[in-house]
């Protein structure tokens, strides 16, 4: 067999390995290059999806914010006790929602999501973000308040609700992030936290007292 055929065959075989090598590389290496899209189908349609951009508007948002001065159906929120925690200009003393185990469980879950990062799981103001702020020695940082003092224990439920909704000092307003019902659930759970850290033996049902010792 002529030498050139053998060499040609070997070069072809080596070149044929290249695509396989590229494929193997693409399967193990992460890359910020746009994905290869061999068959387009109708994968990318000229339509606007949630949170996509639309160059027609100055802020480039496809989703339009509410027009000022308008109210969406069922969002009038005219019950000031439920949506502002106030009645006749005063904070409501107690939670407008019935306190059930389900509400407390919901409150615990929401508290752990939204509040525990700063206020800590037990409410002493020792959450991971607060610890991080201390580590970084942030000058403007006001440490989160502990719930376990007389001042906080005597606050009206509506006052706590108002603070969650509108924020205070450092703390941002959580009204936009947490629906009103969940904010009340959190208030109920904070009350449970406060009792848990300030309880006497007499507060525990008699039949359960033995299990504490």
């Amino acid at each position: 067999m002529s030498k050139s055929v053998i060499i040609g065959g070997m070069i072809a075989a080596l070149l044929a390995l290249l695509p396989l090598l590229f494929i193997a590389r693409a399967r193990v290496v992460r890359s910020d290059r746009t994905r290869i899209h061999l068959i387009q189908d109708m994968d990318n349609q000229p339509k606007f999806k949630a949170q996509s951009s639309n160059p027609l508007f100055a802020d480039r948002r496809a989703m339009r914010p509410r027009v000022l001065g308008t109210v969406a159906r069922e969002q009038l929120n005219e019950d000031t006790r439920l949506y502002l925690g106030m009645s006749n200009g005063e904070f409501v003393p107690t939670n407008p929602l019935p306190i059930t185990e389900a509400l407390l469980k919901r409150g615990q879950e929401r508290y752990d999501i939204f509040c525990a990062a700063c206020h800590g799981l037990a409410g002493y103001g020792d959450g991971m973000v607060a610890i991080r702020a201390d580590e970084l020695q942030e000058g403007t940082w006001t440490p989160p308040t502990s719930y376990h003092n007389d001042l906080m224990r005597e606050r009206e439920d509506g006052h706590l609700f108002n603070t969650i909704t509108n924020g205070i000092r450092n703390m941002a307003a959580y009204g936009p992030q947490i629906p009103a019902q969940d904010r009340w659930a959190i208030v109920a759970y904070i009350r449970a936290l406060q009792r848990s850290q300030n309880a006497k033996l007499e507060d525990v049902p008699e039949e359960l007292r033995a299990s504490l010792r």
Binding site: P19, I23, A26, R27, R30, S31, D32, R35
Partner: peptide
Amino acid sequence: YGGSPRTTDVGYEPA
């Protein structure tokens, strides 16, 4: 293997 999404899509890590 070249056309599989494990090659073309997985590992996309945009900056």
